[in-house]
Write a protein that binds this DNA or RNA. Structure first.
Lengths: 335, 335
DNA sequence: CTGTTAGCGCCTTCAG
DNA sequence: CTGAAGGCGCTAACAG
C-alpha cells in the first residue's frame, strides 16, 4: 500500500501545536496568532499535506459537490451545460459528479440514490419523464434539487427552463412567412415537457396562419439522432411530402440531415428546416433556415445559482421557500 | 434543517441487534442468521435507511468513485468516452466525477487536487500538455492514474492510446492513391502527443511517395473548432492552394468544413479531406473522403479496466507493477 | 452467529 | 489565543 497519508495530526506534531489549531488555520479562522499561522503553513508545505475531504464532510455534513443527472451524456446540449456548470462550480470549490439515467426512470432512481448516499450537497437534473415522486423523495431527505431544461408538474421543484412554446412558434412562423404552407414536424415523445411545449408552439403557429396539420407528416419518437433519420426517411417516402419541417432538437436535426446527405440528394435545394438548438456544428446543417438558440451558458449559471442558494440556506434554511421557476428567452437565428 | 438522517444505530435499535450486525447485513456478510437478516432488512425498509457513503469511505478508505479530467468537456470525442466509462463504472457501483482542465496546466493541477482531496479511488486523464510531474505526484500519493488518448513520456503511467501515426499514414496514403500530389495539413500543437504522432504519419506518407511538404500549407493551432476554420481560410486565401488536406481531429475538421460551407462555396466538388475521427454527425462533413475511426468505446472500456485493476491492487497492491501501455488500432473509413 | 470496542480524519464546543 | 475531549456514521478485529 501507499504510505499512510499525512493528516492534521502530523502537521500538528511538526508545528508543535494541537490539531485544533491546525484545523483553525486550515479554515482561515481569524483568531489565530500570526506566528502560529506561519508555523502551521510551513509544516503543511513541508509535509505536502492535503486535506481529507471525506473526513471533513463527515463532520460538516457538506461534501462540496453537486450531482448532475441527464438522460444521455452523449448529447452536445448536455455537455455544454455540464461544461459551463463545471466552470462556475470549480471556481467556488465544488466538484461535479455526473450520471446518465439512460432515459430510464429505473436508472434515474438508481443514480439519485447513488448521489444521495454520497451526500452531494445538491442535485441538478434533466428528468427523464414526468414522474416526480422519487425525485421529491430525495429532496425531502434534505438535498436541494433543481430541474433544468425539462419541467415536471408535481413536486414543487425549482426549475430553469426556456420558452419552448414561444421559440417554436417563432420558428414555424418564420417558415410560414417565407411562403411555406405545408410544414411537417419531427418531434419527441410528448411525455417530455420540452418536446410537448415545442409541439404546441408548432401547432399554434399553424393554426394562427390557418394552415392544416397533416397527421402523416407529424412524427414523434425518442429524442435521438437515429429517430430523426428514420422520421425523415419515412416521410419522404410517402407521396407528396412537404418541403418544410420543424425539428424539435439538435440530435434529431442531425439525424434528419444525415438522411438527406446520404440518401436524399435529389431533395437538395428544395427542403427547408427550422429547428431547435444552435451548435458549434450548425453551419453543417445545410437545410437549416432557422435555428432557435437556447442560452445554454445562462441555463447552467442559473442552475448553479439556484442550487447553491438552496444549499447555503439563503432561502431561510428550510426547504419551505417557494419553488423558483425561471424561463429564459430563446433567440431566432436566420441562416 | 432537515430531520437528522437515519443511521445504522436507528436500524440497530429497531431490529434489536448491534450496529455491527446491521453493518454485516448491509455488506452481505454470509455469517448472519437468516432470521436476523430479515429483521434488519425490515427495519431498513421501515425507516427508509440509506447508507452514508461518506462515513463508510472514511473507514474503508475507498470512495467508489473515479475522477476524469479532460481539456474540454464539450468535444464530441470526450463525451463519447465519458458516456462509455459511465456505463461501465455505474455497473460496478462506481460514480464518476468529471472536471475540465480548460487546456491549462494550472487548472489541471487544481482539478487533480480537488479529486485527490476527495479521495477518488482512481483518475483517468486526458492530459493537457507534456508536463507530468504534477500528475506523477498525485500517483505517488497512492491514487492510480491512467492516461487516455494522449501520451506523456515521463512518469511511468498506464495509458490507453491508439496508433495515431499509423492511422494518419493510412489516410494520407489513401489520398495519394487517389492521385493527389499536393496535400495540406491542418493540425494541432506538437506539444500534444496525438497531434504530433499524426503529423509524423502525414510526413511519412508524403515522404514515402516522394512528395514535397509545402510549409505554406501546414498549419498548427489549438485543437479546437475555430482554429480549423481559420486555418482553412488562411490557406485558401493564398495563391494556388492544394485541393486535398489531412485534418488532425474532429473539432478542427468541423471548423474547416464550416468555413467551406459559409464562405467557400466555390470550392465545392474540388476539395477533399482525410481526417481523424468518425462521429455521429460525420455524414455532414461533406468534403471528407477518408475518416480514421478511433475505437472510442473500447478506449473507455480499457481505461476503466486498467484503473480498476490498479484500484483493486490486482497488480499486487504496490504501485510497483510496470506501467501498461495499450495501443489500439484505428480503422480507415471511405466515404 | 453476535456484541463490544476502537478508531478512520476532522471539526467544535468548552475550558483555560 | 490555544489545547483537550468528544463525536460525525460506519467497519473491523476480537471475544464470547
Amino acid at each position: 500500500m501507499s504510505p499512510r497519508a499525512v493528516t492534521i495530526k502530523d502537521v500538528a506534531g511538526k508545528a508543535r501545536v494541537s490539531t485544533a489549531t491546525v484545523s483553525r488555520v486550515l479554515n482561515d479562522d481569524p483568531h489565530v496568532a500570526e506566528g502560529t499561522k506561519r508555523r502551521v503553513r510551513a509544516a503543511v508545505d513541508e509535509l505536502g499535506y492535503n486535506m481529507n475531504q471525506v473526513a471533513r464532510s463527515l463532520k460538516t455534513r457538506a461534501t462540496k459537490t453537486i450531482g448532475i443527472v441527464a438522460p444521455e451524456l452523449g448529447s452536445q446540449f448536455f455537455m455544454l451545460l455540464a461544461e459551463n456548470m463545471d466552470r462556475d462550480l470549480a471556481a467556488r470549490g465544488y466538484g461535479l459528479v455526473v450520471c446518465s439515467s439512460w432515459d430510464s426512470v429505473e436508472e434515474e432512481k438508481q443514480r439519485l440514490r447513488l448521489l444521495s448516499e454520497r451526500l452531494v450537497d445538491g442535485i441538478v437534473i434533466i428528468p427523464t419523464s414526468d414522474q416526480w415522486r422519487h425525485i421529491a423523495a430525495v429532496k425531502a431527505k434534505g438535498i436541494p434539487i433543481v430541474l433544468v431544461d425539462r419541467r415536471i408538474e408535481g413536486g414543487g421543484l425549482d426549475a430553469v427552463l426556456v420558452d419552448n412554446e414561444g421559440g417554436a412558434f417563432e420558428a414555424v412562423s418564420a417558415l410560414i412567412a417565407d411562403g411555406h404552407r405545408r410544414i411537417g414536424f419531427i418531434g419527441g415523445s410528448l411525455d417530455v415537457s420540452t418536446a410537448r411545449e415545442r409541439y404546441f408552439g408548432y401547432r399554434r403557429a399553424m393554426e394562427k396562419a390557418g394552415l392544416r396539420i397533416e397527421p402523416d407528416f407529424v412524427v414523434f419518437g425518442p429524442l435521438v439522432l437515429d429517430s430523426g433519420y428514420r422520421a425523415m426517411r419515412a416521410m419522404l417516402q410517402k407521396p407528396d411530402p412537404p418541403e418544410a419541417y420543424f425539428i424539435v432538437n439538435a440530435d434529431t436535426h442531425v439525424g434528419a440531415t444525415n438522411y438527406l446527405m446520404i440518401e436524399g440528394r435529389e431533395w437538395k435545394k428544395r427542403i427547408s428546416f427550422a429547428a431547435f438548438d444552435e451548435m458549434p456544428f450548425s453551419p453543417l446543417l445545410t437545410f437549416c433556415r432557422y435555428a432557435v438558440q437556447q442560452p445554454i451558458a445562462d441555463m447552467g449559471a442559473q442552475a448553479v445559482r439556484l442550487v447553491l442558494a438552496r444549499v447555503s440556506g439563503a432561502y431561510g434554511g428550510a426547504s419551505g421557500a417557494p419553488p423558483e421557476v425561471i424561463r429564459l428567452k430563446t433567440r431566432l437565428i436566420r441562416h
